[in-house]
Amino acid sequence: MTASQLMIDVSGVEKSFTLHNQGGASFGVLDNASLQVQAGECVVLHGQSGAGKSTFLKALYANYSVDDGEIRLRDGEQMVEITSALPRRIIALRRQTLGYVSQFLRVIPRVPTLEVVMQPLLDLGVDAALCEAKAKHLLQRLNVPERLWSLAPGTFSGGEQQRVNIARGFIVDYPILLLDEPTASLDATNRQVVVELIREAKARGAAVVGIFHDEDVREAVADRLVDIKAI
């Protein structure tokens, strides 16, 4: 890995929610939030439940808009300011640069597990046989039984769905990875697999920002903790 390279540069982010249909109640969540993450670094967001950790992560994925501030993410040679970027710019960024893994799987009803996992890599135009090989390898590592691969994940247990989702999230080697409690409710064995996957991502130079409630996972992957305080 070359000398550290800035991958994520957040400054002065403000975010509040206004519920127009519930009496216009408004509450602030993020106040002047800033963060810099280098290539190969894993930052763990820390703070009480409701402090705004997930909101911050969703803002990094452009899933939530922000009221003020800048979020700049590295895409190859350039830094892209995502709060003002066009939708198609963000979609291109998400396809090859920006990965996001939550604990929930959201897919089309009848699509088989193997295809669900392959899809993001296939969308980059990679040869189908190669996508399939990598998907199988990931599912194997995450201990998803082979007999389930040809079935749609809709009927799987919560833990199985979650592991399918992790496999899908790790199939592309994204330079920036956002992890929203991917290990919540996984058993120790599978948590360890996820820890390995995160370490491998760091080793290839990915910048990782995550939320982990399990202390063992946090200690195993975090280079530093960043406090998010409720306002």
Partner: peptide, 29 residues
């Protein structure tokens, strides 16, 4: 997982080659 390292290495190499052969993947935008 470690005994699978060979498989993984082969996969990574193949993928890198794939991306190198088709440089337009680098510029989806």
């Amino acid at each position: 997982v470690q005994s699978d390292a060979g498989v993984q290495q082969a996969l990574e190499t193949a993928l890198q080659q794939e991306f190198k052969d088709q440089p337009e993947f680098q510029n989806g935008w």
